[in-house]
Every structure is written in C-alpha cells, then in structure tokens.
Amino acid sequence: MNSNYVYFALLVMCLTVYCIRMLPFLVFRREITSPFIRSFLYYVPYVTLAVMTFPAIVTATDNIWSGLAALIVGLLAAWFKGDLFFVAISCCATVFLTGLIF
C-alpha cells in the first residue's frame, strides 16, 4: 500500500466529510421562517434515528433473537425510564444474557 496515496486519500475524504457537515451551519445563519422547513427539520431527528435503529438493531449481533430481545428491552426501558445510559446498558446486558441461552 502506497502510503502517500493513503494520506492523500484520507485528506481528501476528511475534508469532504467536514464540508458536508459545515455548509448548512454557514448557509442557515438565521432562523428559518418557512413553517414547512422548520417542521421538516424538527422531524428529521426522529425519522433518521428510527430508520437507523430498526431493523439494524435486530441484525447487529450474530444472533437475531438476541437482537430482537435487545430491541424489546430497549423500547420498554426507554418508554418507562428514558435514561440514556440505563437504556444503552439494558440493551447490552440483554444481548449478553440471551447470548448465554441461545
């Protein structure tokens, strides 16, 4: 592997990724007044995170039943307790415990 090429590629790609994230902050310097765009941007996190969570959580481990159990426990923990660290740990513990069974 040519190391000059690797460093060059890394530089190009890091800059590209940074620009993708930076441009909106430069463009939208004021509060957007359009109700449609405001609403759209308000809903973005919920949709994006929901789409990224399911079904990925089910297939994240090497056992689909562990993943499914983690999803159910995570949903319950988030619904009734909502604490970030608690939910994350509950999901991990579920995978660990179900891993002992399956």
């Binding site: 949903l75 619904w79 604490d83 660990f96 891993g99």
Partner: peptide, 22 residues
C-alpha cells in the same frame, strides 16, 4: 465475540432513549 456482540447494540439503545420518551 460476546463482548463485541453486547457492545454493538448500545448505540441503538441510545437512539431508542432519544426518540421514545418524546
């Protein structure tokens, strides 16, 4: 493997903790 497995769901657990309470 079990450690990688268990840790791999923690990010999804966090996502749930962000979207489910609202």
């Amino acid at each position: 493997g079990w450690a990688v497995n268990a840790l791999s769901v923690s990010l999804y657990g966090m996502f749930l903790a962000i979207i489910i309470p609202p």
